[in-house]
Design a protein around this nucleic acid. Structure first.
Length: 106
DNA sequence: CCTGGGGCAGCCG
DNA sequence: ACGGCTGCCCCAG
């Protein structure tokens, strides 16, 4: 496992239950602002959803995004954490962590 | 709403 | 080591 992946997973674990983050934010957190896709790759490759709650990572536009066990599975997990999803969309204003300014203008 | 192109770590030949 | 392809993406038009 590479350094990059480790960083990604580590940040994942910091996300509190009931909150979500985005691939982009994760990318920024690991120092690779433009590597959102690579981040997704890392999460996908990890394949250890029990220890690493990668279901709390969604797209920056609020869509659910993909998941190893399927989007539907991901949605269930999120709902299970009291996160409301309307038609495949998550309200980032309410759930986003660490909540950057640009998402707070509601 | 849809289309196209960019950018990045990993994997494979 | 090298080049090309891929994928839980992002953003501008």
């Amino acid at each position: 496992m590479t350094k990059f992946e480790q960083k990604v997973l580590k940040f994942c674990r910091k996300i509190p239950q009931g909150k979500v983050s985005t691939y982009k934010i994760l990318a920024q957190a690991v120092g690779r602002p433009k590597a959102a896709r690579a981040v997704g790759n890392a999460l996908n490759k990890n394949k250890m959803p029990i220890k690493v709650p990668c279901h709390r990572i969604v797209k920056s536009n609020g869509q659910v995004g993909g998941y190893v066990k399927g989007q539907n599975s991901k949605i269930k997990l999120l709902r299970n954490e009291l996160i409301k999803i309307k038609n495949g969309l998550i309200d980032l204003n309410s759930y986003l962590y660490p909540a950057p300014e640009k998402y707070k203008k509601l």
